[in-house]
Design a protein around this nucleic acid. Structure first.
Length: 299
DNA sequence: AAGCCGGGGCC
DNA sequence: GGCCCAGGCTT
């Protein structure tokens, strides 16, 4: 391996982050030594687009009710979706339930340790497959989530925020930074994610507390560009996303089929939008029509 | 590559 | 009120 000044700097940064992580890591339940690979997998799916503080109580409840893939596979999909609560993106709950069934069907009820097998499971994409391989099995992998992208973008590319979509260049950069030793690789993965979550945050980075401030290209350039950076805007009020969420909230709370059309809590929604959202939920397999004549629905 | 998919809390 | 968050799937 060439020992260019750049490679030396890369290793120094990785080591600083790892040392910082050993000191500052949050004590999260899915990080504990006694947490099963299944517990890690469930946490990773829940953490897709949902912050830690909201995931923690739901994760505990899931682990209590369904401590193994076989337990969830034997449950009703509706119970899984109901137990998902308000974490958002309820299709994740359905996919997790489908994932549990696939684990029983194809993997003897165990979580596989190789990324290729993990990638084939419902709801498991590139990030989650790499994360489970690393955090559940101590495997070397390229864990590239929104936090790591931001840390790399700032420290190496002097960008305030990473590109909207992951690029090939980013992926190559991230892969090149992963230490060859598996244990070191896992620590770098966890540490770089934690640094992005706690210090190198999107809006208000705490550069005065950053262990790699001295090596950060963005900070050296003046830490500019946060205000001007164009970001993706997710509309919410009045959108299908909100209407779907309200329908799901209604059905989660009900334990008998509900006449959704004309329901008091949904009166302000246009009938056309209500119908199309209901249809899309049925198409997604999250909601079932119990009685087409009466217009009743359930999870 | 782009669009779609929740929801809560913080600034 | 804007913005962000341990992404994945479909087209």
């Amino acid at each position: 391996m060439p020992t260019t000044p750049q490679a030396h700097r890369d290793r120094r940064i990785v080591e600083q982050v790892t040392t910082w992580f050993a000191r500052e890591a949050r004590d999260l339940p899915w990080r504990r030594a006694d947490c099963s690979p299944w517990g890690v997998l469930v946490s990773e799916v829940m953490l897709q687009q949902t912050p830690v503080v909201r995931v923690e109580p739901v994760w505990h409840e899931w682990m209590r009710r369904w401590p193994s893939p076989a337990d969830l596979a034997g449950a009703d999909q509706a119970d899984a979706v109901r137990a998902w609560g308000r974490l958002g993106y309820p299709r994740r709950a359905k996919r997790l339930w489908e994932c549990a069934r696939a684990l029983v069907e194809h993997h003897g009820g165990e979580v596989p340790s190789d990324e290729e097998s993990l990638l084939a499971l419902p709801g498991i994409g590139a990030y989650t497959a790499a994360a489970v391989a690393a955090f559940a099995y101590g495997r070397r992998s390229v864990v590239l989530d929104t936090n790591v992208r931001r840390v790399i973008g700032r420290a190496w590319e002097a960008r305030a925020l990473p590109p909207l979509h992951q690029t090939v260049g980013e992926r190559e950069r991230a892969a090149a930074l992963v230490p060859h030793d598996a244990t070191a690789a896992v620590r770098w993965a966890a540490g770089s994610m934690e640094l992005g979550a706690l210090v190198c945050t999107a809006r208000a980075p705490r550069c005065d507390e950053c262990p790699i401030a001295a090596d950060c290209a963005w900070l050296a350039a003046g830490a500019q560009g946060l205000d001007a950076a164009p970001r993706r805007v997710q509309p919410w009020h009045g959108t299908d996303r909100q209407v779907r969420g309200r329908i799901m909230a209604l059905l989660r709370a009900a334990h008998a089929p509900v006449t959704v059309g004309g329901h008091a809590s949904l009166e302000d929604i246009e009938p056309g939008q209500l119908d199309s959202c209901l249809d899309s939920l049925v198409d997604d397999g999250l909601v079932r029509a119990v009685d087409a004549q009466r217009g009743t629905y359930a999870l």
